[in-house]
Write a protein that binds this DNA or RNA. Structure first.
Length: 109
DNA sequence: TTAATGACCTATC
DNA sequence: CGATAGGCCATTA
């Protein structure tokens, strides 16, 4: 495969614990703003558990991935909860609180 | 090579 | 708020 996947995976790996990022945001940080769709495809096609925290990636409205993507309906929701990310009743996260600022943990602008 | 697909996004109604 | 339509790109068949 090309380096598109590698770039996307690199960005997803840098998402700090307790934070979430949108597909579009990952796409921008990976190099192209129009890779939002490709990001989703990449995570679905080759999600390496333990290496790529794909559960920290949500869509633009904070909606979690479809249930079948993780094997269980509350799987992603539970993983986020373990990191301190609370999900609403409808399965969405508050992006105004948990959205990743694009910096690594500990770094400040 | 062409056509179809999808864990998306934005705009519009 | 939900539904619809169009666009975008890499990957697959």
């Amino acid at each position: 495969m090309g380096d598109t996947f590698a770039r996307i995976y690199d960005v997803v790996r840098q998402i700090p614990r307790g934070r979430v990022a949108t597909y579009g945001q990952v796409a921008v940080l990976a190099g192209n703003a129009r890779w939002a769709r490709v990001v989703g495809y990449a995570l679905h096609a080759n999600p390496e558990p333990g290496t790529i925290p794909c559960h920290r990636v949500v869509d633009r409205s904070g909606r979690l991935a479809p249930a079948f993507a993780f094997g269980g309906e509350g799987a992603q929701r539970r993983l986020l909860a373990e990191e301190g990310v609370t999900t609403r009743e409808d399965g969405t996260v508050d992006l105004s609180v948990y959205l990743w600022n694009g910096l690594k943990e500990g770094e400040t602008p």
